[in-house]
Write a protein that binds this DNA or RNA. Structure first.
Lengths: 342, 342
DNA sequence: CTGTTAGCGCATTCAA
DNA sequence: TTGAATGCGCTAACAG
């Protein structure tokens, strides 16, 4: 049985209302009373009960974050950004690892609602219809990070994947590469998969380069699928001098598979990644990649969330996060990399 | 204004007590009543308020996790294990990123207490005196993962770092390496730093190998400090054929620096890591390392926590997590690696 | 400046 | 099998 406001009031010989005022720094108490109460609080070791506060105050100072996966460099960086800003604003964060399972995320939504979170951040996964409806029914504000809903108008903070992929491809083209392989995400991923694919294709087209479908393969953004991607590419025996991987993890998978096969990066093959997680920095050789400002996106997401909350505003203002190309060691001028199958 | 148990009661024409019983599956209601109430709940879209429940029931089904860092492969894997098991048991988890800052973790402790968490998991960081006292004063059970308190008897789940380092070193010795460099964590880290250092030294000693202090350097478990570590080692110009890094990140740093310097792993130098995070799998070449079962440790931690909670038991039972050596590609027999400065 | 009181939404006695 | 009443710890009127 913990010690409550009542105990403090009794100990200090005042009413609970006075204690409450002092604890919450509200006007209306004398200097001497304050001292008395503060001393009692100190002596008794009183801690306010946030649950009780939440019940009457109708705010819990808590937000929920749904992530498809929390281990991994991408999600954890995002989460760290969210936590850092949330804390600064006086909020705690519930992590929910949905594992991209619909039933899990529905359960999470339910629990978060029951726990009366003040807001929710939905991160980097596609939304099913059922989830969308559940979200619609939510009374708290919801913000998407690193994803968006095509069917429901939730505000989001996210880089423009199409444009980023377009720019990345152009970068490779500018370096003189012409036969460029592409390892994408799942093709039915309308958020992170398709737009990058489209951006790639459009950039190729705008530069007058034909698309060779044998050079278009798809994975799931993970390391192993990057390895597999390169294997598929190699099996096609079609000439190419660069590969654009849709995630750093896949790009590192390409590096790894290339190493196994005795292919030297960047001397034989150029590799471009996407995300700029620490994996890019740690890679051998260090990976040239398209950066997403993950920690900043986390920050922006909670800022946006809290703004909407304060304004009780449905005012949907999306935030376009900036992408940029971080040059490291995996892309050289075309003339300096041999290429494969030429 | 959300819809409450009262609304359901009114709608169904019963008392709130009955609704409560039905919602909580407690004995004492008729079949027809149940149907009626369930229908009302369905129609109104009622969701119980966990905050109110928490206030009366004195349990919030929430646990707090304190991590020095949440981005990164190590912590996020641990966190994922914790979340997965917590969810299975019906608990939500608050993440707190302490950044190893004492004021932050003290704030976190305070907040978690106010939010009435049912338990706390303190992960992989050393405990200061002030934190220890705060933890002592906590009314909820507390479990340590991947760390322990030397001054306070909190239960922990953790691998035996001394033994693991001893075994890792023995492994290298068994492969025929004799001059082995060691890159440790902070030397004043009594939990993860010192024991590994001791295990290393003892293993060397037991195998009759002298310790060359020029081959003992220290970092902070991070990538960059691994790079720096190898640089220091190289500067010493003392012969060695293997390096034992106290974390995978540092080991990958060694790989990276070796690559920069044109040193081939494992042909010129053997490298052994510690942790077996995904960094080890993704490394080039794939890293031989001492595995900590992070997800299992996360699982064990919450299981232990809940057990203590149920038994209201101070019964301290620590859990020793199993370590094992995962052989990949960075360690060969001594005769197959040249070594440096010989 | 301070105290009294009425809920917040719910689980839980105790009666009926 | 059911309902009325009480209180969890706190904030926010309202009254003095």
């Amino acid at each position: 049985m913990s010690i409550t406001i009542k105990d403090v009031a009794k100990h200090a010989g005042v009413s609970i209302a006075t204690v409450s005022r002092i604890v919450n720094n509200q006007p209306g108490f004398g200097k001497k009373t304050k001292e008395k109460v503060l001393k009692s609080i100190e002596e008794l070791g009183y801690t306010p009960n946030a649950i009780a506060r939440g019940l009457v105050g109708r705010e819990t100072r808590t937000i929920g974050v749904l992530l498809p996966k929390v281990s991994g460099l991408f999600a954890s960086k995002l989460l760290e950004g969210i936590e850092t800003t949330a804390r600064k604003e006086g909020y705690s964060v519930f992590v929910c690892h949905t594992d991209s399972k619909e039933d899990r995320s529905i359960q999470d939504l339910q629990v978060l609602k029951e726990k009366q979170v003040d807001g929710m951040i939905y991160a980097s996964d596609q939304l099913s219809l059922a989830q969308g409806q559940l979200l619609e029914a939510m009374t708290c504000p919801i913000v998407f990070v690193s994803t968006q809903s095509l069917t429901h108008p939730f505000p989001y903070v996210k880089v423009d994947d199409y444009q980023a992929a377009y720019d990345g491809t152009s970068y490779l083209l500018t370096k003189g590469h012409e036969q460029i392989a592409f390892i994408g995400g799942e093709q039915d991923d309308l958020i992170a998969g398709k737009p990058r694919d489209k951006g790639f294709r459009q950039a190729m087209k705008d530069h007058g380069m034909p698309i060779n479908e044998a050079l278009m393969v798809y994975g799931d953004f993970r390391f192993q699928s990057g390895k597999k991607g390169l294997r598929q590419l190699l099996a096609a025996k079609t000439p190419f001098s660069a590969v654009f991987a849709s995630s750093d993890e896949m790009a590192v998978g390409v590096l790894s598979e290339a190493y196994d096969k005795g292919i030297s990066v960047p001397k034989d093959l150029a590799v471009l990644g996407y995300d700029n997680t620490m994996a890019a920095e740690m890679a051998i050789p260090p990976l040239t990649t398209i950066a997403q400002p993950l920690d900043d996106m986390g920050k922006q997401a909670v800022t946006l969330l809290l703004t909407i909350r304060e304004n009780r505003g449905k005012a949907i203002s999306n935030i376009e996060a900036e992408h940029e190309i971080v040059e490291r060691k995996t892309v050289l001028l075309r003339k300096n990399t041999k290429g494969l199958f030429y």
